[in-house]
Amino acid sequence: MELLLAISIGALVAAGVYLALRPRLFSILLGITLVSYAVNLFLLASGAVLADAAPLTDRPGPWPDPLPQALVLTAIVISFGMTALLIVLALRAVNERGHDRVDDEPDKGAGEGAHE
């Protein structure tokens, strides 16, 4: 199970980082969403990971680590706020500039054919 979790985290980070390096705000948003999934899983993995239990002390133990869970819970809600803020920035950018590019640096290597 640990291996599966580690692979998932790695795959989500890789996909998220790639998307975050794209020049459009919407892609970056998708990238950050993926990275925050990975970070949440990573945080959870930092505690004592248990399968098929619950952090409820009226049930018999062993119990999983509740502290990372509490951190992740707020992180999930905060990342919603973050996503919302980013998407609104994209809205404002489109409204003012007509596009949601974040990269004003021209890519000299990109030929005409690279553009759709």
């Binding site: 790695g10 989500l12 980070v13 998220g16 980082v17 794209r22 000299k108 290597g109 690279a114 553009h115």
Partner: peptide, 24 residues
Amino acid sequence: PRESSNPRRLLDAIVAVAAGAGSG
């Protein structure tokens, strides 16, 4: 739209895979 050149996308992909491998 597709805006990045191939070398640029390749570099990004390498960095992304390295980051993924590292965090995994």
